[in-house]
Design a protein around this nucleic acid. Structure first.
Length: 422
RNA sequence: GGAGAAGUGGCAGAGUGGUCGAAUGCACCAGUCUUGAAAACUGGCGUACUGAGAGGUACCGGGGGUUCGAAUCCCUCCUUCUCCGCCA
């Protein structure tokens, strides 16, 4: 959520930056400012009435103490009017605040100046390309390879749960475990503290990172206890810092965590959901940083470099995209996507998204730090996948297929305990 | 799941309807003293909204209520502790 104070002071600049998303948010911003001005006015009136009430109550108290019952009773009769006014104003204030919040919830983060203008993924900038696309004699898509080598059983998952809940078995399961462990070890080496968070979160956490209220339909919800299955470890890990005031020397905070992730993916169809391309349950190692505002873009680059290092070690051809305004996530100010080449599908698959949210999340989270001047200021939050498993697996299987079997990347062999799937 | 007790500032802890945003102690910050430190002394020491400022308002686990007035009374939810039950 954008800061209403910033909308007051930087209105035009923010409008200009938001325009890069390809949608005009001017009207919403003007509306928000108008609502906030109305809110302030009501607030001032209410404060004034409450001040009068408090004064009166104090006087009544004193009169009672002095046993001046009659005078006190007289004053009491004056309070009715004030009470009516204050409860009316209070209601007006609450509804105005709610109205304002609803408008603010609709305004996405304002993109960083380096973010290119554009409406859709077609307008993303390719920052770099790495590695060679393999030339294969046989090109089986990963879902056929999974069946051939009995690695992942999609239909068994349908039987047990439903589409998008695959069953990993044998070397398929071991490869999963190997990837998770390798990712976590690499993250730890890079200075990230390993976290094992809960994978069910409460409503407050959903609001903290912005999944609620707008993306409610994308999460699995357990109404009996009003808990949500996390769509990413970002939710529980970032929420560790909800309502926290950090010291400046606490920066940077670097956390990583492996969790299963659950996404309803309502509305997806076709080739996008084939095989491992899009699942309802998948595994991911996430990296999260809480940073000083002056250091957050440095951190973004560092995280991008880190993720690319993983892809290089896995030997997967990949490209880095700087997302355009329209494709940048709602809460993000700037996002790099890493996509790996899927040799049999002959398409790029997104395996990581590294974003700087600046204060957008911190504002909702009330995640602040005490600056050297002693003032509490919002921190910056960043996160990225490092990495999401399914598409990495798809890419390894497809790119490394040979007549003899699927060659396991060197770095994973000690973790897998085998070097080929055949 | 059942029964009981409790939740107050960074921590400890007083406060059971009226000058209480909250005593006191510890911690912390600044100053005095000291070559320096410690001790002692003096002062400061929560967050948010609002206002140019003085100030005003809200917050004593969350929400709601009673009252002229609530940390204090009532309802409800959450959390913690003790006992019982169940259980990886």
């Amino acid at each position: 959520m954008l800061l209403i104070q910033n909308l007051h002071t930087d209105k035009e600049a923010i409008k200009l930056r938001l325009a890069k998303r390809g949608t005009d948010f001017s009207a919403l911003i003007d509306h928000a400012i108008a609502l906030d001005n109305q809110r302030k006015e009501i607030q001032t009136q209410l404060d004034d009435i409450l001040a009068q009430s408090n004064q009166l109550a104090k006087s009544i108290g004193q009169l009672f103490a002095q046993k001046k019952i009659e005078e006190a009773t007289l004053l009491k009769s004056e309070t009715g009017n004030l009470k009516e006014q204050s409860s009316a104003l209070n209601e007006a204030l609450k509804s105005k605040e709610k109205e304002l919040l609803e408008v603010l919830y609709q305004i996405p983060n304002s993109p960083n100046s380096r973010v290119p203008e554009g409406k859709s993924e077609a307008d993303n900038t390719t920052v770099s390309n790495h590695g060679e696309k393999p030339i294969l004699s046989q090109k089986l898509p990963h879902w056929e390879l999974c069946e051939k080598y009995n690695l992942i059983d999609f239909e068994l998952g349908v039987k047990i749960t439903g589409a998008g809940f695959p069953v990993y078995r044998g070397k398929g399961a071991r490869l999963q475990r190997a990837l998770i462990n390798w990712f976590l070890d690499k993250a730890r080496d890079a200075g990230y503290e390993e976290i094992q968070p809960p994978i069910l979160v409460n409503e407050a956490s959903g609001h903290g990172t912005g999944q609620l209220p707008d993306k409610e339909g994308q999460m699995y919800h357990m109404p009996i206890d009003n808990l949500y299955a996390i769509p990413t470890a970002e939710v529980p890990i970032t929420n560790m810092y909800r309502d926290v005031i950090l010291k400046e020397e606490d920066f940077p905070i670097k956390n990583c965590g492996y969790t299963p992730c659950f996404r309803r993916e309502a509305g997806s169809y076709g080739k996008d959901v084939r095989g491992l391309n899009r699942l309802h349950q998948f595994d991911k190692v996430e990296i999260v940083q809480i940073q000083h505002p002056e250091k957050s873009y440095e951190a973004l680059e560092e995280m991008s470099t880190y993720v690319q290092g993983l892809l290089q070690e896995l030997g997967l051809p990949y490209r880095v995209l700087l997302l355009c305004g329209g494709d940048t996530g709602f809460a993000s100010a700037m996002t790099y996507d890493m996509e790996v080449w899927s040799a049999a599908q002959e398409r790029w698959l997104e395996v990581s998204s590294v974003s700087n949210f600046e204060t957008f999340q911190a504002n909702r989270l009330k995640l602040r730090y005490k600056s050297s001047s002693g003032k509490n200021q919002l921190a910056h939050t960043l996160n990225g996948s490092a990495l999401a498993l399914p598409r990495i697996v798809a890419s390894i299987l497809e790119n490394n297929q040979t007549a003899e079997g699927i060659i396991i990347p060197q770095v994973l062999r000690p973790y897998c305990g085998f070097d080929i799937i055949n």
